[in-house]
């Protein structure tokens, strides 16, 4: 099993100034799994993702990636292994959709060289899978919010990394695109061995697509495990203070949550 281990976080803590954001986080993440990161607003989800992309160093504890400290990797090395879809994205310059997606190839293209045929192919492939190929020559500033979000995800897919980190990546999308995009990503997990770590607000979406979930509450890990063990009436009551019933769906093999409004 150890060869499939990607991330190991040991007693990781982080604080902005004096405000603690994460306390004593211990988790292990393995290859080719779809991880969901859930928790209320301000529970530290985004910060945990920042720590895992290596943008922020932890104040305490250690993060290892493939048994090497995360901080020993260079920015460019990490860029070939971990891709990020941030929560917010805005752009004032008139790059075309294709230009933006091709930027995902940046870590693979040496300085002063042109993109290879392979770079163009994987750019095209990523656009196809996000259903934006028909927009490829459109300027990015002329897109709707949902289209823009698909461009950003395509950019991360074109990066062709073994880890994909999604920070509420589908929150701007309509239900059709949310489901089709999650399917595409899910398929990459299954077929290409991609590892996905996604902060997700929609619990039913998390239950449907994730293998395992990590639940954050008050800067700590409240629970982690497979979706069937995580999503219980009690947990939803404690973590989110909502009244909900959870039914296991024998047809689909994942829990279905119904909220009491």
């Amino acid at each position: 099993m150890t060869d499939k281990l990607l991330y190991r976080l040991n007693d990781v803590s982080f604080s902005y100034g004096r405000t603690p954001v994460l306390k004593d986080i211990n988790i292990e993440l393995r290859k080719a799994k779809f991880y969901g990161l859930i928790g209320g607003n301000g529970s530290g989800k985004s910060t945990l993702l920042e720590l895992m992309t290596g943008t922020l160093p932890p104040n305490k504890g250690r993060i290892t990636y493939r048994n090497k400290r995360l901080s020993t990797y260079s920015k460019l090395q990490l860029a070939t292994k971990i891709a990020l879809v941030p929560q917010h994205f805005s752009m004032d310059f008139e790059y075309s959709v294709k230009d933006i997606v091709l930027m995902g190839r940046h870590p693979h293209i040496p300085r002063f060289s042109s993109p290879s045929t392979y770079d163009h192919e994987s750019t095209r492939h990523a656009m196809e899978s996000m259903d934006i190929l028909h927009l490829e020559d459109r300027p990015i500033v002329a897109l709707s919010g949902g289209e823009l979000q698909r461009v950003v995800i395509a950019r991360a897919l074109a990066q062709e990394t073994e880890v994909l980190i999604l920070d509420e990546a589908t929150s701007n999308l309509d239900i059709h695109h949310t489901i089709s995009i999650m399917r595409v990503i899910r398929r990459r997990v299954k077929e290409d061995g991609l590892t996905v770590i996604a902060a997700i607000h929609d619990l039913n979406l998390a239950a449907a697509f994730c293998d395992e979930c990590v639940v954050l509450k008050d800067s700590c890990i409240f629970a982690s495990g497979t979706v069937n063990t995580i999503f219980t009436k009690d947990l939803l009551q404690t973590v989110f203070t909502v009244d909900a019933s959870v039914q296991s769906n024998p047809e689909t093999d994942f829990p279905h949550i119904q909220f009491r409004y």
């Binding site: 920015k75 070939t80 933006i100 950019r155 980190i165």
Partner: peptide, 10 residues
């Protein structure tokens, strides 16, 4: 692309 994305692209 913004600070965070640029960092994640190396």
């Amino acid at each position: 692309l913004g600070e965070r994305t640029a960092n994640s692209l190396g």
